[in-house]
Computed example of a mutant assay.
Amino acid sequence: MAFGKSKNRRRQDTAQQKEAVKGAVRTHGPGLLKAILLTGLTVALVWGGIELRRWALSSPTFLLKETTFSGLQRARPAELLKLSGLTVGQNLWTLDVGALERTMSAHPWVRTVEVRRHFPSSVSVEVTEHVPAALAVLGDLYLVNEEGEPFKRLQPGDTLDLPLVTGVDREGYLGDEGRTREQIRRALAVAEAYAATQPAKRERLSEVRVSPEGMVLVTADGLEVRMGEGETDAKLERLSRVRGELRARGLSAQVIHLDNRARPGWVAVKLSSPVSERSGASAQ
């Protein structure tokens, strides 16, 4: 009798274990199946990615065939290609766009550059060049842009008709770049305002001198105009009236003073003729 009870108990335990396994399968089976499928899919994707990368890096489909440039005026495509090392036959996937942009930016005329890959086989390079606004004497002659930044030493082949900014020096620029650039910007602003008055050819601006007393303009015919500080437009208007009066009288000036701080409306003129000076005349 005891033996029969033991067999029944074993049967019950086995049945309970089977039910437990079935319950576990019902409960965890779908999640386990998803995990297996996801693992398989991940492995397949990784393997596929490796194979795809191997194909992309070795396929002739992605070899560089053409490089186009836009925005070039003075820089030359061959110069930028030489700087960057970009050549036909390179794989587009392996190109370091950032490195290409940095190396091309080393060209003195290049202000900004953006390189784009166009799959499967071309690259475009969009360049913004510096626009020269004047020459500055900083030990050597340098081209400066409209922001007062010296960007290139003047070379014999740089045929440019630009006003000269003097009164700044290399030591000052190296010691305080921001201050020197601001001085150059102010000189350029005065030069731009002067050009807007549409001077005759012989009256065109040759030099803008930065001095402690303010800006000094020197024209192509040798006239020196001492502007002082501030009120640029009003002073240039007075300058035009004084010039008109001098022409009407058949006179020419050597120096015109517009820098009288005590009496801003007054103009002093030093004539080129033996009648050396006319001063204290109001231009109002």
Rank of each mutant, 00 (worst) to 15 (best):
L141S: 07
W109C: 02
E224A: 05
S124C: 04
L246C: 04
V127K: 08
E177V: 14
E146W: 02
L223F: 07
N145K: 03
E114S: 13
I256W: 03
K34S: 04
N91L: 10
E114I: 10
L205G: 08
E19M: 05
L32H: 00
A234E: 13
L160T: 08
G157F: 05
L83T: 09
R226Q: 10
S206R: 11
S121M: 02
M1T: 12
N145H: 05
T94N: 12
R226C: 03
L83Q: 05
T14H: 07
Y142N: 04
A262S: 13
S59C: 01
Q16H: 02
V113A: 14
A133D: 03
G172Y: 00
S273L: 03
L83I: 11
D176E: 13
T180C: 10
T67N: 13
V125T: 05
L138P: 01
G250S: 09
D221G: 03
L174A: 12
R9H: 06
A35V: 08
A196L: 10
N91D: 09
S58L: 06
R153C: 06
R179F: 14
E182M: 13
L64T: 15
H257P: 00
I184G: 08
M1G: 13
R241E: 15
W109R: 03
S124Y: 02
L174V: 12
S279M: 11
S252Q: 15
L52Q: 09
L86I: 14
V216S: 02
